[in-house]
């Protein structure tokens, strides 16, 4: 084995590399999460972890199971396709515990957010200049937000 004579130190160096590589592979096998690679190059369990995050908006279907009267009134009017939580805000808490009072939305803020006239809004959308339209009187004095056409019942 004359080729390897006087090359002992190189084999020692090689041994250091082999030990390092083996250690790396052992650690890798122990530390990589089990579900990694289940569906692709990521931790498969992450999908169900994200899917199980808590809800805040309950969804109009849930609201309508109890508030059938409002749902019925709403379905007949211009706001039929405006979902409950669009104005009332997220109410999953109220679904879990109905004793939690959701409170009444502030019409003074809410109505104008959509209906204050602006050249930027699409023309088909009903818009008013609030000061001119009601002269400071609250919108809900004349309109029922659940069915806003005045003929439909006025204030409630």
């Amino acid at each position: 084995m004359s080729v390897f004579r006087n090359a002992g130190h190189l084999f020692r160096l090689a041994a250091v590399f082999v030990v390092g590589t083996v250690a790396f592979l052992v650690i890798r096998a122990a530390v990589v999460p089990r579900s990694f690679g289940e569906y692709g190059h990521y931790r498969g369990a992450a999908i169900s972890e994200i899917a199980s995050l808590p809800l805040h908006f309950a969804g109009h279907q849930t609201c309508e199971t109890c508030h059938t009267d409002i749902a019925k009134m709403k379905s007949a009017g211009m706001h039929a396709h405006v979902n409950c939580e669009a104005c009332h805000g997220p109410l999953e808490k109220h679904v879990k515990d109905p004793s939690i009072d959701p409170g009444k939305p502030d019409a003074a803020v809410l109505c104008v957010r959509c209906h204050a006239a602006s050249a930027a809004r699409p023309k088909w959308f009903p818009q008013v200049d609030p000061a001119q339209h009601s002269g400071g009187i609250a919108c809900t004095t004349c309109h029922n937000p659940h069915n806003p056409v005045i003929a439909a019942g006025g204030s409630k």
Binding site: A7, G8, H9, L13
Partner: peptide
């Protein structure tokens, strides 16, 4: 640092 080898012969 020598990794236990002190071979510094001309050939090495």
């Amino acid at each position: 640092l020598t990794l236990g080898s002190t071979d510094v012969s001309e050939r090495a």
